[in-house]
């Protein structure tokens, strides 16, 4: 078994870009649990980190939008955003093209997957990396699921992807960590920024932590849009992690709505055995 860690976390740009404006107790609690996740990944001995993200038009646009894409580059650069705006300095992040190619080849047996040898990381990946690999010394393999440009990737295909990723990880000799990063409910970059549906979030997290496949796949995009906003579509990244850990349950380490971060900030893990 080579999957050694699985978790999910938030990635909103305000987490680093507007840090000084948050309630210090909530912000510090979030940061502490990001640190706890970093320590768990390090303790797992992970040799590579697969980040399942929901990027925001940094690499993929409606001229050629893949349902799924995985990075296969030697290295990556990020953030694409202004450094001061995001509060993260630009870095070069090491990739692992050899491992990525093997994972992609295996996943393609079950899911039609695009791959990319160029990829600019936006806040959707850089905010998690800022906390989880602050020295940028762990190989990273990015994954994108289309959560932005409708038609969006169907949830049952996300589940299939998560299962295929798990099989691919298990076939690799390397120790691999996977982290999904996204919503839950939020209305980002709109006049409603900061609106958070805590009830909807907590209900989703309960289903996610219980790894209740049927309930997780029952969400419709119309329902998610109405209850969880545009950002709610990013539940796909959490669902992919649940699929990769099918049969296991999760633990919510931290959840708190932090309006100036524009999202219900979440840190959670799921058993991998």
């Amino acid at each position: 078994m080579s999957l050694v860690f699985a978790g999910v976390c938030s990635h909103a740009p305000g987490i680093t870009g507007r840090a000084e404006r948050a309630d210090p107790a909530l912000r510090d609690g979030l940061y502490e649990n990001f640190g706890r996740m970093r320590a768990s990944i390090e303790k797992s001995g992970a040799e590579a980190l697969v980040v399942i993200a929901a990027e925001h038009f940094a690499n993929f646009f409606m001229d050629n939008m893949p349902a799924f894409c995985m990075g296969m580059a030697d290295d990556y650069e990020g953030p694409i955003e202004d450094e001061a705006w995001l509060g993260i300095k630009r870095h070069r992040v090491p990739g692992n093209p050899d491992l990525a190619e093997r994972l992609i080849t295996d996943i393609m047996q079950d899911v039609d997957l695009a791959y990319a040898q160029e990829w600019k990381f936006d806040h959707g990946i850089m905010v998690p990396l800022h906390f989880l690999t602050p020295r940028y010394d762990l190989d990273v393999i990015p994954v994108n699921i289309n959560c932005q440009g409708p038609p969006l990737t169907p949830l049952h295909r996300v589940w299939a992807f998560g299962k295929a990723l798990r099989d691919a990880c298990d076939a690799a000799p390397e120790k691999i960590a996977i982290v999904g990063t996204g919503g839950i409910s939020h209305w980002p970059a709109t006049p409603d920024s900061g609106k958070i549906n805590e009830t909807w979030d907590r209900d989703f997290l309960q289903k996610w932590a219980g790894n209740r496949k049927e309930d997780l796949l029952a969400y419709t995009d119309d329902q998610t849009y109405a209850e969880g906003g545009q950002g709610g579509f990013e539940i796909r990244t959490f669902i992919a992690i649940a699929a990769a850990c099918e049969g296991n349950t999760g633990q919510i380490w931290f959840y708190a709505p932090i309006p100036i971060f524009a999202v219900g900030c979440t840190i959670a893990t799921m058993q991998v055995s």
Partner: peptide, 30 residues
């Protein structure tokens, strides 16, 4: 950031509700 949020609100006041896409205003911002 705050000026960006305000600019969108001003845009609605001046030009009306969002005409296309998913990023419509629903109310309840911070």
């Amino acid at each position: 950031w705050d000026d960006y949020i305000q600019a969108m609100k001003d845009g609605i006041e001046e030009h009306g509700e969002v005409r296309a896409g998913m990023y419509v205003r629903t109310g309840g911002g911070y």
